[in-house]
């Protein structure tokens, strides 16, 4: 390919690199902006003066967070939620996806189950009945409400199912001849062959559990039980939109509008995702590709 280093080709390379670099920078900007805000002095941050780089330098926000027990408490709850939620749903999803990846001849009830799953993905009874249901299971205020009540991420089941379906059939046939039962085939052969998609689904589910804040707000009775995102959300955007403010609320708001502190909290909250993501990233391409598209 060395031979076609024509002028046009070279110009193309340059333009291309410029475009991609701009795109890349634009994607880095949110992180950089948040970080800049978090280490800027409070007055500059609140006056909206921070655009490209920190104004002033202050670690006051980080110092304040370090002394905030509630923040770390919520952090811990979020970690429990991610571990339990991702672990359990991964097992359930894998076990579910495997029979569904079979044809109707191999698994008779397959289509019925599939449509039930699709139905569950699209229809819901609404917030109130859902809340009442979780309540009637006596799960409110427990970690299990956060882990279970969000339901099974059906989209990921489909991703897994498609990947399983596209695995070469002969591996499994060989195992059957060796006398392996369906459980051994699933966990001994299918799962090890499907690491890319499992890594992908793990990340998706984990990020969902990490980022989700609404369920925490609805299902937990007070802030000491909130996961991290709920804790942050109540600090960042809890402005009443439909009532005028009372002096008390107003006072609180003006004290609250500490953009630099909020930015520091946000920055700390995304760090775990950024740390874990590169380790799983190499699996993505194959994982998503084979999960979504048959070739």
């Amino acid at each position: 390919m060395v031979q076609n280093k024509t002028l046009g080709s070279r110009i193309f390379d340059i333009v291309n690199t410029i475009i991609l670099t701009i795109l890349t920078l634009s994607c880095l900007y949110p992180l950089w902006y948040t970080f800049s805000l978090s280490i800027s002095v409070k007055s500059a941050a609140n006056a909206g003066l921070v655009t490209f780089y920190p104004i002033g330098f202050s670690l006051a926000s980080y110092r304040e967070i370090m002394s905030d027990i509630k923040f770390f408490n919520s952090f811990w709850i979020s970690i429990q939620r991610v571990v339990l939620g991702t672990g359990l749903s991964l097992i359930a999803m894998i076990m579910m996806a495997y029979p569904l990846s079979k044809s109707k001849q191999e698994f008779k009830a397959r289509d019925i189950f599939m449509w039930i799953v699709i139905f569950c993905m699209l229809f819901n009874g609404g917030l109130i009945p859902w809340y009442l249901t979780v309540k009637s299971y006596h799960l409110l205020d427990t970690i299990w409400a956060l882990v279970l009540a969000g339901g099974l991420p059906v989209f990921n089941v489909i991703l897994l199912m498609n990947f399983f379906r596209n695995l070469p059939a002969d591996i499994e046939e060989a195992a059957v001849i060796d006398g392996a039962g369906p459980w051994r085939i699933l966990f001994g052969i299918v799962v090890p062959c499907s690491l890319p998609v499992i890594a992908t689904v793990t990340l998706f589910t984990g990020v969902y559990h990490w980022n989700e804040f609404f369920n925490g707000l609805i299902l937990m009775s007070d802030a000491s039980k909130y996961p991290l995102q709920t804790y942050i959300q109540q600090l960042v955007v809890s402005i009443p939109s439909d009532t005028t403010l009372t002096p008390d609320q107003y006072k609180r708001l003006s004290e609250l509008s500490n953009k630099s502190l909020n930015a520091a909290k946000v920055f700390i909250a995304i760090t775990p995702v950024l740390i874990v993501y590169p380790f799983l990233q190499k699996y993505f391409v194959t994982g998503i590709m084979l999960g979504a598209v048959k070739e």
Binding site: L127, I128, Y131, L132, K135, L217, I218, S221, D222, A223, Q234, L235, V237, S238, I239, P240, S241, D242, T243, Q249, R252
Partner: peptide
């Protein structure tokens, strides 16, 4: 006895809506 708390503003109003909606 405090059954539940929520942050002033939208979060609290949402909880109140939910309490009314669920007749609870």
């Amino acid at each position: 006895i405090v059954d539940w708390t929520a942050a002033q503003g939208n979060n609290y109003n949402q909880k109140v809506s939910l309490a009314i909606a669920s007749g609870n």
